[in-house]
Design a protein around this nucleic acid. Structure first.
Lengths: 232, 232
DNA sequence: TGTTGACGTAATGTGCACATTATTTTACCA
DNA sequence: TGGTAAAATAATGTGCACATTACGTCAACA
């Protein structure tokens, strides 16, 4: 990040924004942690204003919660909120797989097969981190294959928010999806044109994720900022 | 708005944000209009920093588009983007009415009936503005009746974005919904427990809206800022 | 006359200093 | 010793001044 800072440097903004998001995604920032602007500016080696801008953006996007004159905090997503998000995802993703089952391009089928192969490979060599990442991207991929950018963007936001409190609690020993072969089954149903089956499988898959996450209540301990942003 | 500006004054921020959103909703700001910070600060009688904050928020929420070192502009929503948004709405709202048809509380039924009555009353006395407002709220109401806050919040964003380029082009002589009795029919199907029929009606309703909006291409003329924010 | 170049003006982006508020520490008293 | 209040400290919020960039104007030249 040792670049010359010029006017309108969107890369620096993105770097700060990305660093915080990455730290959250890696589970380095426990819910309830206060993100102090001076401390963050020191750790990330940027000005306080840049930190402020990134924090405001993250608040607007729902990643963080701001309390006036108090500061910005990592939210403690309740189980109820999580269930609501999964509920919305169920509506959208059921419609997505149904639509894909009823018709998709040859390129879509190829990308889908390639992704499933990647996931299996990652599981085979026991690469937890990669498998976790890919399992999340699977759901985004399905949205992208519909050819609707708005849909993909929306689902990406829902996915990251729904997996947030999960990855915040215990990201090391988790797998992003209940059954490792769930994705393969869903893809198979889509490629076979079985709309109802694909829809049912997706709903069951998401229901399984809710159960899995509900059993992992997030811990209450606060995180240290210097530790959290080590190498992100 | 003649208040003493104190530390952490969230009301002032909200006022600026609301003024811009209201001006857009009223169709005062034509697509392509540049929102200059000094001019806005003069018109709204606030500091430039406050305007900047509001603009950044509106950009992050998708209402405006920012070009680095160039400024912030009222976006020209293409027909393709509009269709994508309506596509997502179709997925969600079909699921919503299906769910409501399969079961809802007595209070939900009462609120739904009351809303339909309000809409009919507004149409009867030919109150275009009120009818326009209510017709939009109908869709949000359905989401709210599901008891899922995340869902309602999401749909509200989609609704405002989808009606944006419409209200930007010719908001005066428009009705927000294709058939004036569409909402009544949908509500009737929901209250009668006819899930499939309600779903079909909603999809047809949204399809009609797309057609209606596709025939109204937004004008290309720029807006004057002092004129746009008169009394908002 | 059309085009290109430089210059002046005005906008955006950023860091800094200060005001205000919250939090912690400390001292004092019952 | 426990509790309360006040002062010190540190954080957030805001306006301002300056640097940088884009845009419009005008003149010179082919």
């Amino acid at each position: 990040m040792a670049r010359k800072v010029r006017k309108g440097d969107v890369a620096a903004d993105e770097a700060v924004y990305g660093a915080i998001r990455r730290a959250m995604h890696l589970g380095r920032l426990a819910p309830g942690t206060k993100l102090q602007e001076p401390a963050l500016a020191r750790v990330l080696k940027v000005s306080r204003e840049r930190v402020r801008k990134a924090l405001h953006r993250l608040v607007h996007e729902g990643w963080l919660t701001a309390v006036p004159n108090r500061g910005t905090f990592v939210p403690s997503l309740s189980v109820a909120e999580m269930r609501e998000i999964y509920d919305v995802r169920s509506m959208l993703e059921a419609a997505i797989v149904r639509r894909l089952s009823e018709g998709h391009s040859a390129g879509a089928a190829r990308r889908l097969k390639a992704h499933i192969a990647d996931e299996k490979a990652a599981l085979k060599i026991n690469d937890r981190g990669r498998a976790f990442e890919l399992s999340g991207e699977f759901h985004v991929l399905l949205a992208e294959l519909c050819g609707n950018d708005e849909l993909a963007k929306l689902l990406r936001g829902l996915l990251t928010r729904s997996t947030m409190h999960f990855s915040l609690s215990a990201p090391q020993q988790l797998h992003n999806c209940a059954g490792p072969h769930d994705h393969g089954d869903i893809a198979e149903a889509i490629l076979g044109g079985k709309a109802e089956k694909a829809s049912k499988l997706m709903l069951a898959h998401l229901a399984g994720l809710i159960e899995l996450q509900s059993t992992h209540p997030p811990s209450a301990k606060r995180s240290d900022l210097v530790e959290a942003f080590r190498g992100v």
